[in-house]
């Protein structure tokens, strides 16, 4: 899986010709939605890692974000809502030689699929999960999600969300993921590198992508223009390293301002036996 080429010049043209199912293009995502970027960055990472598409399976649940695998020239399982990780467990355990990549949404992963999520992570299954966090149930028209920030608007929270949200990356880390990173889509190179690291990691890799949903989230939260919503992500996010420095050495005012910020960066790297490894060892032992 992880064979590296020394020089592999990647271009957008090459990515499109090699990986995109052109009969499916242009894709269905709304104008200014970050999902196209998530797809693009994943393909860049895959190309740079030199993954064999005949040995790679994409899985997803239900939602706008879960439509991503449908645009890739490779085998894919578009499963039921929240269950992509259960199917992925089956795929990986049945054939550990396959590269397994899951696309999921904040609703799919943290809402209906929350239990599948914590257990797939706990087992340290060797898969790469790209979780699109757009703070909302996009596909069904913008209901509140377990990730919707407090005070933000959704069709089911017309006076502002009163529930505290889940932090997806913190959940992944707490449940035992061995690689955890969060990046916004307006930074292309960092998520490409993180997805590459995730693919190299022999364990559960979790890459949370902060992706603007222009239609279901943006409009309802007073981001009338696409650039306003994208700029909001730029204003809100702060590198984890910078965050920690300010926390330690910043003035009181600077530290106060951190409360409104979302940390981005690579949060966790760890080496642990994966579920397949443990299973193979057991089989050897029983021989």
């Amino acid at each position: 899986m992880k064979e590296k080429k020394s020089v592999n010049i990647v271009s957008g043209k090459k990515i499109q010709e090699k990986y995109l199912r052109d009969e499916m293009m242009p894709h269905i995502f709304c104008n200014g939605c970050g999902l196209g970027n998530v797809l693009d960055y994943a393909l860049w990472a895959i190309e740079k890692e030199g993954l064999d598409m005949d040995k790679t399976v994409f899985l997803s649940g239900i939602g706008c974000s879960s439509r991503i695998p449908g645009y890739i020239h490779a085998d894919a399982l578009h499963t039921t809502h929240g269950r992509a990780l259960a199917f992925a467990t089956g795929v990986k355990m049945a054939n550990p030689d396959l590269n397994v990549i899951v696309f999921t949404g904040d609703g799919d992963c943290m809402g209906i699929g929350g239990n599948h999520f914590i257990h797939a992570v706990r087992r340290n299954l060797d898969i790469t999960v790209i979780a699109v966090n757009n703070y909302i149930y996009g596909m069904t028209g913008g209901q509140v999600a377990p990730t919707t920030p407090e005070g933000h608007f959704a069709t089911t929270s017309p006076y502002g969300n009163i529930e505290p949200p889940f932090n997806m990356s913190d959940m992944a880390k707490a449940a035992g993921a061995t690689y955890v990173a969060r990046w916004p889509v307006f930074k292309p190179h960092q998520p490409i590198n993180s997805i590459r690291e995730g693919l190299q990691n022999k364990g559960f890799s979790f890459i949370e992508m902060l992706s603007p949903c222009t239609t279901a989230y943006g409009r309802r939260n007073k981001f009338r223009r696409i650039e306003d919503l994208w700029a909001h992500y730029e204003e809100k996010t702060i590198l984890a390293e910078d965050h920690d420095q300010i926390e330690k050495f910043g003035t009181q005012e600077e530290r106060k301002a951190l409360k409104d910020k979302i940390k981005i960066g690579v949060f966790h790297r760890e080496t642990k036996k994966s579920l397949e490894q443990r299973y193979q060892e057991l089989l050897e032992e029983l021989k």
Binding site: S11, F186, P188
Partner: peptide
């Protein structure tokens, strides 16, 4: 620099070789 190519959500721009 390819930034437009990467930032376009719709695969509508490529930078030629």
């Amino acid at each position: 620099c390819r930034l437009c190519e990467l930032i376009c959500p719709d695969f509508a721009i490529v930078v030629e070789e």
